[in-house]
Every structure is written in structure tokens, then in C-alpha cells.
Design a protein around this nucleic acid. Structure first.
Length: 411
RNA sequence: GCGAUCGUAGCUCAGUUGGUUAGAGCGCCGGUUUGUGGUACCGGAGGUCGGGGGUUCGAGACCCCUCGAUCGCCCCA
């Protein structure tokens, strides 16, 4: 170990163009979220452990092996949030937000999961998140997806497709699950080791296994469509026709499932098209935005049955796709070519900034090189203070109009 | 959690089958040159070669452990 402390594994220090890209994602999200009238909420970064274990499901990987849980000084088991939805549901119940239903909320911030780090996968990562709580109608799903679609477009992300599926209502899902277990159990010994385990814990996940041994049996596995109740089918039909009306392109993904227990009906992911530039930038962490309907979640937290739908997207993954964001140049750079004039320059830059222009002071290092540094930094306008023949000499490098406005500003 | 690759100055990298004081470009700092200018030249700072242990007369190169990154699996955003 070296003597200086190292960052925690799976955390990142984001700086420069990467930080600009990150900020661009958040700013764009904030703008789009207002267009759709989602209200901003701020949530605690940690909750009682049971908030997540009950909401997400004890058997899920997230709860069983990826949470940062600890006992606080009062002896309570607390957990750093591994996702937003459970905490928002808890807040909805504990603050009586039912009075605002249907409630559209949005937030963003850090999440924590103890996973093996990889490109696009971190232990502290960041998401933007949008939820509609207390709305049972498919129109809520349509609005939420339209917002996601517009967000990706405004971020300039190309080559990403909405993969859409329905898991049906509770009864549909249970019947389908039973049929899948029966189907795969018959060939259990020929499945991959992972899928043999999934058969007991989470049979739906076998459907999106990447293992060739599994894929042979996935093709003719029972389809959810055979088990959909009339209501569930009507819901999905209304959703897809709403998406078409909103101009949101989608593709049916019959084997798309969600890892967390609370999902019902709608499940979706935005995934880069194979071979696209976006896909190669993301590596194996391909889902950039995912979510669905979670009508059963509130009950698992002891609340009244409350329909809800939401999505989250990884800011780091989106930032990888938005391309280089250059840190903007200063509007003005004030150069001090002679140290006697430092106070004159400070007075000038104060006026410039008070006038609403970004400005940088160049007053250190070799006086002769300061002007070159200013030119190199790429400012639109440069004001240089120098002494010529014993008198103050102010030079401006800018076009005529800018020079005039600067002279007016500086009096 | 499993498998694999990698880790040399701030950054990008070079360092022949282990052999004297570990290099380049860019960047940074200083000097000179130019003087409405992003030039050129000279000089300087900066590395216990990720960390620890071992093999050897000798290790940046080989072995073991460890930390980290990356790729695949898993998981997921």
C-alpha cells in the first residue's frame, strides 16, 4: 500500500469533460422532467434495512448479497440505498402523500451496491429516477415512457431501442411462472449451472440467459401471452397503442423480465442496438434505462394497495453516450502583464463578473507568458494590463463590438 | 462471487533473452526570442517502475501474495 489514501473500490472521482457530461445528463433530465410536470423530491441516502428487504425481496441478489448494511450506534440495521423506488414508496406511505395521488415525482443521486466493478458498473453509482404513484391506468405508463424517450432524444443518444414486455397481473404472472418451472424442470440437467439455480429462485430469469445451453429451451418455453387475463391483455394493448400515438418506438421483448420481485404488468428497458456505437461504448452493461409497474410494492411495506410505475437510468452510462462535453471557455480573461497593475485588474474583473460574464484572472507565472496562456485558454475576449513607457496600457483582444461593450462595462 | 488481461513521471507510452546513474512526447515551472501575440530555442521540477514478500551476484522485467482497473460470466442502471 502506498502512503496516500486510495479511493474506495468501485467509486469514482469525476472531473473535466466527464463531469461536464454528467452535469449535462442531470440538467437535461431536470428540464425534461419539468416538461412532463414531475415534481422534484429529495430522499435520504439511507433507510432502515427492512425498507429494501421487504420491498425488493429477500431472495434477490440485490438484497441477499449486494447491500451496504450496517448497524448504527443505536443498534438499528440501516442500509445505503441500492435503488430509489423502495425509499420513495416508504416516503409516500410515511408522509401521507396519498393526498397528492396520482403523484409524479423525480429525483437523482447516488446509489450503492456491493458488486464487482466494471466499466459502467460501480459500487457508488448515480441514477435519475421518475415515478408515478397512485395511477392504475396504462396512460401513466405511456407518459412515463414518453418522457424517457424524449430525454434520450434530447441527450442526443442514438441507436437505443425500447424493449417492452408485460408480466401480467399477479395471477397471470403466477400461472406463467408455474408453467415455466414445469417446462424447465423437465430438462433441468441440461441447463447451465446458473439456470438450475435460477429454476428455484427466479425462473423468469432463465429467459434472458446468455448461455447457449439454456437458449435451446428458451425458444419453445411458454409465453406470457398464453396466461394473460383479459384485464392484463387490455392493459398492455392500451399501453402499446398509447405509445404509438405518442410517437414512441418500441419493440416487443417476450423474454424481458425484471430482477426485482415487485414488478407487475409493464416491464421495459432501453437497450442499444447490437453493433451500434452506443453498444460498444457500454460494453456488457447494456441497459441504460429500465423500469416497470410495481403495483404490489406498497402492500409489501404494509401500506394499502397502490398502483405505481417508474423507471431509473444510470447517469454514468448515459454520460458515456452523450459524447464529449467541453468545459466552456471564459467569456473574458483578464491578464496582468505587469504586477504593479494587479489591483486595477482585480477591480476590472469584479465589474466584468458583476455584469454577468464569466471571467478568469491570469496573474501568476512568468509575466511574459501570461498573455500566451490566455490566448491558449481560448477566451473570446482578453483584457491585458501592462505598463508602457511608465504609464498604464490596457489592450483588448476582441472584435469591435465586444471591445465596445467591454469598454462600457469597465467605464 | 467465478474466469482472464493489465498496472513504468500529471497524461499517453517505450524500456530487447533479468545487467551500470529508468527514457520519450505532451503538460507544468523558469529563462531567452517574438511583440497585437497560441512561435522557436535553452534549462528545470516531477518516478522507492501499484504495494508487500521471494528467487538471483544483480529484478521494472521471473515467482507468490495483495490492491486497483479493464474484459467476459453473474447482476443490473
Amino acid at each position: 500500500m502506498s502512503k496516500t489514501p486510495q479511493a474506495i473500490r468501485g467509486t469514482q472521482d469525476i472531473f473535466g469533460p466527464d463531469a461536464e457530461a454528467f452535469a449535462f445528463v442531470v440538467e437535461t433530465f431536470e428540464r425534461v422532467r419539468k416538461l412532463y410536470r414531475f415534481r422534484r423530491v429529495e430522499m435520504p441516502v439511507f433507510e432502515k434495512t427492512e425498507v429494501f428487504s421487504r420491498a425488493i425481496g429477500e431472495t434477490t441478489d440485490v438484497v441477499s448479497k449486494e447491500m451496504y448494511s450496517f448497524e448504527d450506534r443505536g443498534g438499528d440495521s440501516l442500509t445505503l440505498r441500492p435503488e430509489f423506488t423502495a425509499g420513495i414508496a416508504r416516503a409516500y406511505l410515511s408522509n401521507g402523500w396519498q393526498q397528492h395521488a396520482p403523484l409524479k415525482v423525480a429525483t437523482h443521486g447516488p446509489l450503492f451496491r456491493y458488486e464487482r466493478p466494471q466499466k459502467g458498473r460501480y459500487r457508488q453509482f448515480h441514477q435519475i429516477d421518475a415515478e408515478i404513484i397512485g395511477a392504475a391506468e396504462p396512460q401513466a405508463d405511456v407518459e412515463l415512457l414518453a418522457m424517457a424517450d424524449q430525454l434520450l432524444k434530447e441527450l442526443g443518444i442514438e441507436g437505443v431501442t425500447l424493449h417492452l414486455n408485460t408480466l401480467g397481473d399477479g395471477d397471470s404472472r403466477d400461472a406463467w411462472r408455474g408453467a415455466l418451472v414445469e417446462h424447465f424442470r423437465a430438462v433441468k440437467n441440461e441447463l447451465s449451472e446458473d439456470s438450475q439455480e435460477r429454476l428455484e429462485k427466479n425462473p423468469l430469469r432463465i429467459l434472458d440467459s446468455k448461455d447457449r445451453r439454456d437458449q435451446r429451451f428458451v425458444a419453445d418455453a411458454p409465453k406470457i401471452d398464453q396466461f394473460l387475463s383479459d384485464d392484463a391483455r387490455a392493459f398492455f394493448d392500451a399501453l402499446t397503442s398509447g405509445l404509438d400515438a405518442a410517437g414512441v418506438k418500441w419493440t416487443r421483448a417476450e423474454s424481458l423480465v425484471r430482477g426485482l420481485d415487485y414488478y407487475r404488468h409493464t416491464a421495459f428497458e432501453f437497450i442499444p442496438e447490437e453493433g451500434s456505437e452506443a453498444a460498444s461504448k457500454l460494453g456488457s452493461q447494456s441497459t441504460i434505462l429500465g423500469g416497470g409497474r410495481y403495483d404490489g410494492l406498497m402492500e409489501s411495506l404494509g401500506g394499502a394497495a397502490t398502483p405505481a410505475v417508474g423507471w431509473a437510468a444510470g447517469i454514468e452510462r448515459l454520460a458515456m453516450l452523450v459524447g464529449d462535453r467541453i468545459e466552456p471557455n471564459a467569456d473574458v480573461i483578464v491578464v496582468v502583464e505587469n504586477d504593479e497593475l494587479i489591483d486595477r485588474a482585480i477591480a476590472a474583473i469584479a465589474k466584468i463578473r458583476a455584469g454577468g460574464h464569466s471571467a478568469e484572472l491570469m496573474a501568476t507565472g512568468s509575466p511574459r507568458k501570461r498573455f500566451d496562456k490566455a490566448v491558449k485558454a481560448g477566451a473570446d475576449k482578453i483584457v491585458a494590463f501592462d505598463m508602457r513607457d511608465g504609464t498604464e496600457h490596457v489592450r483588448m483582444k476582441a472584435d469591435d463590438e465586444a471591445t465596445a461593450s467591454l469598454e462600457m462595462l469597465l467605464g
